[in-house]
């Protein structure tokens, strides 16, 4: 990853950009900052938002708080809905959304389950994917969208609907698919012998068959792209998901469901050669 960051750094000297990284203090923040500096020497860290030319906010909370500085704001791993809301309010901001693109996940699902035809997708109000996104899908998979407002509805939906599906794909949605609901979702699905994909790495650890996810490196790379774009044109690129997400496979589940790829490396290789 460090190598990727280094390779992404421009070879010629440019005007320095004072950036303040707004995030909860912790190892993730320090690692993130170090990686940014290592990735681009033109980035200067500002000790506060007031002293910075732009602000990088990690997560929804930091993103929301950074708006007050009135400076260009790049949200990293923030919910799509929050970014869109703030942007509609006039915030000079852009975001790397939490999660990965629906098409990427479906492509991965297709690789893992080539015979799957009918995939169910449950979304809520804060999900990374909107109803429109799902409806805009033009791939060969048949998608069935289930809209739920809170976790209490999940069980009922799953019991009633899973039987007609080949697999279930979940978006990043902290309110719906957090740790509290994982067991419900996964156990219900597996008792009905239906594999679950997504929404991100920890869910795979909890039992999801496989998922693409935005890793720390992915986010740093994407952030560096945005910062270079900002330094070059003084404006952000369009908000969106990371372009090259990482992939993780739950080997046990993949084996249980006799999926095509049983480990992450094999799946990554397959994804890289996809058009």
């Amino acid at each position: 990853m460090i190598w990727l960051l280094l390779s992404a750094a421009p070879a010629h000297a440019r005007e320095k950009l004072k950036v303040h990284v707004q995030a909860a203090e912790g190892p993730f923040k320090s690692g993130f900052v170090n990686a940014l500096q290592a990735g681009n020497a033109d980035i200067l860290l500002a000790p506060s938002g007031e002293a910075a030319e732009m602000i990088v906010a990690l997560g929804d909370e930091a993103f929301s708080r950074s708006v007050q500085f009135g400076k260009p704001l790049l949200g990293v791993f923030v919910s799509r809905r929050l970014e869109e809301t703030l942007r509609r309010k006039g915030c000079h901001c852009a975001a790397i959304w939490a999660g990965v693109a629906l098409n990427d996940q479906l492509a991965m699902l297709q690789l893992m389950m080539p015979v799957a035809a009918n995939v169910g997708i449950i979304i809520g109000r804060n999900s990374a994917w909107s109803e429109g996104t799902v409806q805009d899908y033009r791939g060969r998979l048949g998608l069935t969208l289930f809209k739920v407002d809170d976790q209490a509805e999940l069980g009922k939906v799953l019991r009633e609907e899973l039987d007609s599906l080949d697999a279930l794909l979940l978006p990043v949605d902290e309110s719906l698919f957090g740790p509290d609901s994982a067991k419900l979702v996964l156990l219900t699905s597996y008792r009905l012998r239906r594999p679950v994909f997504g929404p991100e790495q920890s869910y795979v650890h909890a039992g999801s068959a496989a998922s693409l996810f935005a890793s720390g490196g992915d986010l740093v790379s994407e952030t560096l792209i945005q910062l270079e774009s900002f330094m070059a044109r003084k404006r952000f690129r369009r908000s969106g998901f990371v372009h090259t997400p990482s992939v993780i496979v739950n080997e046990h589940v993949a084996n249980s469901f006799d999926m095509r790829f049983h480990d992450s490396e094999a799946l990554r290789s397959a994804l890289e050669v996809m058009p």
Binding site: L187, H205, G207, H252, V253
Partner: peptide, 12 residues
């Protein structure tokens, strides 16, 4: 441990 085995959830 049904859930852990079904889901391959080693943490669980």
């Amino acid at each position: 441990s049904e859930y852990g085995v079904l889901a391959g959830n080693y943490s669980d």
